[in-house]
């Protein structure tokens, strides 16, 4: 018996240790980012390989808040990312459900089409998109970005949602329908609650993808009042000098909302399904 206890103990030690390794790998570069942000400019190179600078400063964070347009950029990014995440998840949930529960003509072609959208390099569609968006007045607007991000995120989100729907036994909703629910009611009352973790995951992906997107944001927007934060970062890189401290400070600040968002969707991610619900 004690051997079992001991091996269990060993197992959980190994488990924690493995988690620790992942944490170190994930966080070390971000730690370095923070270190650069709090290092005074004159020590940036002379103490470049030290793990912590001999002096430290908050001045870069202050500058980002007071001297730059970053508060606006963060606001814009938050608006664009949340709108994109919501819109994409809704559209994708509907389409994913159709893929999972129906047999219909053109399914294979549509699947292929969704895949093809991911295969052509974005730099080659940039100019045509610009030409389409410019006359519609969507080049210097957050709405334009939301539309584009939604379009490019929908294909993956559809596949993701489809596989979550696939994981839910068909007889669940069938039995609901036998009991007198319409298909839509069955979807709403039985299926949706079960796919909440999947929706949360989708929401999380799309949000972060939109949060960190740079190419379209850079090419379509030239007015700084509607710029998003990744493009704002680029302004710290000028031809003759890079304002590392401020750039990294802005980068660290940008991680905070993403972190909060992850904590927020945790609940749904972790919630999972209870065994009873699936038995049907």
């Amino acid at each position: 018996m004690s051997i079992i206890v001991f091996t269990n103990f060993l197992k959980s030690v190994a488990h924690r240790f493995a988690i620790l390794l992942y944490l170190v790998f994930a966080l070390f570069p971000l730690y370095w980012l923070l270190k650069i942000a709090v290092t005074p400019d004159k020590l940036l190179y002379s103490e470049g390989v030290k793990l912590w600078p001999s002096e430290f400063t908050w001045v870069n964070f202050e500058l980002v808040f007071t001297q730059s347009e970053f508060p606006t950029f963060f606001m814009n990014s938050a608006i664009v990312s949340s709108a994109t995440a919501l819109l994409t998840t809704l559209i994708a949930a509907a389409a994913g459900y159709a893929f999972c529960r129906f047999k219909f003509r053109g399914k294979l072609i549509i699947t292929g089409l969704l895949l093809v959208t991911q295969m052509f390099p974005l730099v080659m569609v940039l100019a045509p998109i610009y030409k389409i968006m410019a006359p519609l007045g969507l080049t210097n607007s957050l709405l334009g970005l939301v539309i584009i991000y939604t379009a490019f995120n929908v294909p993956f989100a559809v596949f993701l949602m489809q596989s979550f729907f696939d994981g839910i036994p068909r007889d669940l909703e069938e039995s609901a329908m036998v009991e007198g629910c319409s298909r839509f009611q069955a979807l709403y009352k039985v299926i949706i609650p079960l796919t909440l973790p999947g929706m949360a995951a989708t929401l999380g992906f799309v949000f972060t993808a939109a949060w960190s997107e740079m190419l379209f944001a850079l090419m379509l927007i030239s007015d700084s009042s509607v710029s998003t934060f990744p493009v704002g970062l680029l302004n710290f890189v000028s031809k003759f000098a890079v304002q590392w401290g401020q750039m990294m400070a802005a980068g660290v600040l940008a991680l905070i909302p993403a972190c909060i968002f992850f904590v927020f969707i945790q609940r749904y991610l972790v919630q999972g399904l209870t065994a009873g619900a699936v038995k049907g």
Binding site: Y22, L23, A26, L27, P29, L30, G204, F205, T208, W211, S212, E213, M214, F229, P230, L233, G251, A254, L255, A258, C259, F261, F262, V263, Q266, L269, V270
Partner: peptide, 11 residues
């Protein structure tokens, strides 16, 4: 969980 997922959110 929140921490190990952070790299995905960095531009």
């Amino acid at each position: 969980q929140a921490l190990v997922f952070l790299p995905w959110a960095v531009p």
